[in-house]
């Protein structure tokens, strides 16, 4: 059904898939995601749609292997199918002319940021991409992002490429140096989004983040994806996944992501992979 028509390895443990899914391709807008199930006993888990092509009826997914489900997905080859793919879910990104838009990616976050940067540029924004990664090897989609931005800056934790340090500090430096920034979108690991929000709060730059709580149905039915925004409970799958970064309670989300740590470890061990490998 949802056939993988193309597969590429972008970086260690990061895989790019082009998946046949005409209905989702037709309706997809930046910021939306799909839920997948790889096999019969498999978990339902979310991945952002990194791009879509109506003409070929395909969508692009970029998955980082972190546990059992993403591990199973990585094993699928071109020509094989994903059992279930449902979407496009979530609210689309608000795309409009803001002026200069900063798109800040941490690691795998480059994939969900790509369609946003592309659309932001299309509607006449000046787009500056801040691309952060652990090291040079972990940088993904640099070329693609350079095509949809006016300026692309790189930060790596170990200094193997670009700025030596975290991407939030790179952003701070450039803003301090006078780089304009009317609106920011940050996608990446929670600590990275939290750090970016600390910077943009200082400079009063409205900032959107994309949250990644654990999900089950993705349609608002289970409430498992609830996050606290502005003190109120919101369901990330229908009210988000994008929220005002300055209003998000990152700490409670970080706790919630640890809910199944022991079980995740158990699942990985059963699958014969040491956890955290």
């Amino acid at each position: 059904m949802f056939t993988i028509v193309e597969k590429k390895i972008l970086a260690p443990k990061v895989t790019w898939f082009r998946v046949e899914s005409p209905l989702i391709a037709k309706r997809h807008k930046p910021g939306q995601f799909v839920l997948l199930r790889v096999c019969e006993e498999g978990e339902r888990f979310p991945l952002t749609i990194a791009d879509s092509d109506k003409r070929t009826g395909t969508i692009i997914l970029v998955s980082q292997e972190v546990g059992k489900s993403t591990g199973l997905l990585a094993q699928l080859e071109q020509g094989e199918s994903i059992l279930d793919v449902v979407g496009p879910l979530g609210k689309p990104t608000e795309i409009k002319k803001f002026g200069t838009v900063a798109c800040i990616a941490g690691g795998i976050g480059a994939a969900p940021l790509y369609p946003i940067a592309k659309k932001m540029l299309e509607v006449g924004n000046r787009v500056v991409v801040y691309l952060g990664a652990r090291n040079r090897e972990a940088i993904i989609l640099q070329h693609e992002l350079s095509l949809v931005s006016d300026r692309l800056l790189i930060a790596t934790d170990d200094g193997s490429s670009g700025y030596h340090g975290v991407v939030s500090e790179l952003l701070r430096q450039h803003i301090r140096l006078g780089e304009s920034c009317d609106h920011a979108t940050a996608i990446g690991p929670l600590p990275m989004m939290k750090a970016v929000c600390a910077v943009t709060r200082e400079y009063e730059i409205p900032t959107i983040v994309s949250l990644n709580p654990i999900m089950v149905d993705g349609t608002g039915m289970c409430g498992g994806c609830r996050v606290r925004v502005d003190g109120k409970i919101q369901f990330a799958c229908v009210d988000g996944p994008e929220f005002d970064g300055h209003a998000v309670d990152f700490d409670s989300l970080a706790h919630r992501l640890r809910m199944y740590r022991d079980q995740e470890k158990c699942a990985m061990e059963r699958a014969g992979v040491p956890h955290g490998a």
Partner: peptide, 28 residues
């Protein structure tokens, strides 16, 4: 939003639809 608080929908969906009672033979 503490860990350990479920809605009935989530709890029952995990167990019934996703067969969590068979974990780790099922993945949820």
């Amino acid at each position: 939003d503490l860990n350990g608080v479920y809605s009935a929908n989530e709890f029952l969906t995990r167990v019934n639809l996703m067969k969590a009672y068979r974990f780790p033979d099922s993945d949820t």
